[in-house]
Amino acid sequence: MHNLISISDLSKNEILNILNLANEFKQGRVSDILSKRIIASCFFEASTRTRLSFDSAIQRLGGKVIGFADSNATSLANKGESLSDTLKIIGAYADAMIIRHPQDGAARLAHDVCNIPIINAGDGANQHPTQTLLDLFAIMYTQGRMEEINLGIMGDLKHGRTVRSLIDAAKLFNMNLFLIAPKELRMDHDQLFSLKQASISYSFHNNAEEIIDKLDCLYLTRVQRERFIDNENINFDSYCINSGTLDKAKPNLKILHPLPRREELPEVIDDTPFAHYFQQAADGLYVRMALLEILFT
């Protein structure tokens, strides 16, 4: 593996290798595989967890980080330089690039114009493959298995890049999907057809209560209002959970969320045994360490 642009670039075995190595890092594995390496961390769009966990992962592996967290300070924003030219030049200064950009496909563009490994840290509404890896790690770590998980996904299934990537990965592990979303925010027919082709069981629901007793994991997402192009006026109130939602939950249920959260996941859930989202985000460090080690091995 030399790049990670889309979760569909990875085979099931490659994903499992990353997750198993992440578990080793969580158990205390030490590596200096990035010593004498410089990694460009290029965040053209705001990020907290992804950027800082990558920076931390690089430094824990002995590497150095260059880059920016605010593209307003670059020639791209101030001197009218094209994104393509900017990426080419950064590619000449570093041994690998981690890129987040608000436009769909920006990471693929970086891959096409640079001669160094590229890691997509989120490109518009398209993909966020390292988030998916840490979502999968949370499933594996909390459930002890990956196959035939009953996975509920609630919220914005149309605009969310984490949802798109997670559903792609769920196909590899034969998960059973319970999709909880308003009609306007469901996936399109062809995406559903691809689930059928992969023999993945899926069903649609209007609230989490009706299926909570079946779920092993419930993945919540934030409404991506900033990505709505056509003023979609949707009432999202029924797609938030509260402590009552979890009355009939199985003891092994874990609630996952890519964060940041809003009204869909109130703080009252934080103190329940079902909350796993902060640990999920914290373990992103180990997943990103594993990914970087595999990339440079």
Binding site: S82, H101, Q103, G105, L109, A125
Partner: peptide, 8 residues
């Protein structure tokens, strides 16, 4: 409308 290829 959000695709990066619009500029390339």
């Amino acid at each position: 409308k959000r695709c990066v290829s619009k500029q390339y």
